[in-house]
Amino acid sequence: MKSIMIDLDACNGCLTCTLACAAAHSRSGSIVGAMQEKTPARIFIEAVNGRAVPVTCRHCEEPACAEACMTGAMRKDSLTGLVSNEGHEQKCVGCWMCIMACPYGAVTAHPRERVALKCDGCPGLPQPACVAACPNRALRYEEPAFFAAGRSRDAACSAAQAS
């Protein structure tokens, strides 16, 4: 199953992925529109001593967020492999148990609504919006094995395996 692979060396912290993510989840569908709507991004460019490190949901095999979810809203789809708290019969109530559980910090509180926010994998798009937008090819949508073969020395794959 394809997932978002991160090439740490290639990321230069331009934040384009966060803009594209917000755009894809905004009503307007555009970057400027998303900035005006204040649509939050679901991928994060974290700073480690000034260096940019992308952090986003890995759609884990056994997602801690789903295990912690007390409403059943957070669930891994057995077909797509995507973990999401949206689009299910059960609704997220914003108890933040998933935020407490996720070891990657990939789930956050929506800045204005009482709902947890995380990468939904952009269902319906050929590849996640962040990946499509990355100007540095630091984000790729690939089979983990393929990515690892292509960049065998890359630490990003060890991180992916560690998940």
């Binding site: 991160i6 740490l8 974290e46 700073a47 480690v48 990657y104």
Partner: peptide
């Protein structure tokens, strides 16, 4: 409140 998973990624990468 500045720590994030990126620190661990960076550590793994340095170790790797």
């Amino acid at each position: 409140g500045r720590f994030n998973y990126g620190y661990m990624l960076a550590e793994m990468r340095n170790a790797g």
